[in-house]
Amino acid sequence: MGTDTETKRKQSAVKEKAPLRPVESPMDICLGCGTCSAGCAMTGVDGFDPRKIVRKVLMGRDAELVGSKLPWICTMCGKCEHACPMGINIVNMIRTLRGMVDRDKVPGMIQKGVELCLETGNNLGLPAEDFTFIIEDVAAEMAEEPGFEGFTVPIDKKGANLLHTLHNKLVNTQNEDLVHWWKIFHMAGEDFTIPSENWEGVNWGLFSGDDESMKIVVGRIVEHMDRLEIKNLMYPE
């Protein structure tokens, strides 16, 4: 008594007695305004239309969406939900639909990458010795450029300041793009390291709607930090 201020929340009989709104999921509050569809570059392509997808979910017509290519031609760019006047999380809905597809029916390369990453530590299925060879080869070439003499890539360096992971395409076909960060690190005097295994910097469970694999791949980052006693993480992507 006497300690209430104007900003302190008080009990409200009205709030207690008023019925809860019958909102089971965010889709239930869709106004059908079509702002999402108007802003989406994919609307009208192969029957894609975010407003209709939200409606279908609202009506429980999941099966029509799960078996279709619609969740996969969406780029999950989030423009729809950024503009949505009701704040409906449309990207999460699309990702959930992706996750409901049988894993052997996930289109294209995504699932293969996920499985290879779980098995081998990278989406390419590249053995550790091949990885080390590529890294050392590219680093040696960089060390021939003026200003970068003596440069080497510290692999599995204990106590390093910064953990650096790699996008698989840089290790695969775009080796020339490996050196940009290395050059910056060299000039900045950054004490970085790259892990020799589980070096994959992307996590395609994000795309395939697969939380289980996503968690394992994120967990490997934590393992590196613990095992190598690294101080800071450079977010991979």
Binding site: A41, D46, W72, T75, G113, W204
Partner: peptide, 20 residues
């Protein structure tokens, strides 16, 4: 969006991606 998000470069729906 550039049209390459959400793993679009990895799906078989390449015409849609280019159109995007």
């Amino acid at each position: 969006c550039c049209g390459g998000g959400g793993g679009a470069l990895l799906t078989p729906y390449q015409d849609a991606r280019v159109h995007y």
